[in-house]
Amino acid sequence: MLRKEYDAHVRRYLWAGHFWSGSYFAGSCGGAPLTVVQQYIERQQRPAS
């Protein structure tokens, strides 16, 4: 929808034509309790140091 309505403006913010960055994430948890979301995040694998 954003690209259809504001293509000329958002084109400046795209990475290879996508709204994506390797260092950023946005998501939805569908109304899950915060404790469930926190446990899910804490159980994710960490990047190798």
Score class of each variant (00 low, 15 high):
1 M>S: 11
1 M>C: 08
2 L>N: 03
2 L>R: 13
2 L>G: 03
2 L>F: 07
3 R>N: 03
3 R>I: 01
4 K>R: 07
5 E>Y: 00
5 E>P: 05
5 E>H: 07
5 E>R: 13
7 D>S: 09
7 D>K: 01
7 D>C: 10
7 D>R: 04
7 D>W: 02
7 D>F: 02
8 A>H: 15
8 A>S: 14
8 A>R: 15
9 H>W: 00
9 H>D: 09
9 H>C: 11
10 V>L: 03
10 V>K: 07
10 V>R: 03
11 R>T: 04
14 L>H: 11
15 W>L: 10
15 W>H: 14
15 W>I: 06
16 A>Q: 12
16 A>C: 11
17 G>R: 10
17 G>N: 12
17 G>H: 13
19 F>L: 06
19 F>N: 06
19 F>Q: 05
20 W>K: 05
21 S>V: 10
22 G>S: 14
22 G>A: 15
23 S>Y: 00
23 S>M: 11
24 Y>N: 14
25 F>Y: 14
26 A>L: 08
27 G>I: 04
27 G>S: 14
27 G>K: 08
28 S>E: 14
28 S>P: 01
29 C>A: 13
29 C>Y: 02
29 C>W: 02
29 C>Q: 06
30 G>Y: 00
30 G>P: 08
30 G>A: 12
30 G>L: 05
30 G>I: 00
31 G>V: 03
31 G>L: 08
31 G>N: 04
31 G>W: 00
32 A>G: 01
32 A>F: 05
32 A>K: 08
33 P>M: 05
34 L>Q: 12
35 T>W: 06
35 T>L: 07
35 T>C: 05
36 V>N: 15
36 V>W: 02
37 V>R: 13
37 V>M: 12
38 Q>R: 12
38 Q>C: 14
38 Q>Y: 04
39 Q>I: 00
39 Q>F: 06
40 Y>A: 14
42 E>G: 12
42 E>C: 01
43 R>W: 02
44 Q>W: 05
44 Q>L: 13
45 Q>G: 13
46 R>Y: 06
46 R>A: 07
47 P>E: 15
47 P>K: 09
48 A>L: 04
49 S>N: 13
49 S>L: 13
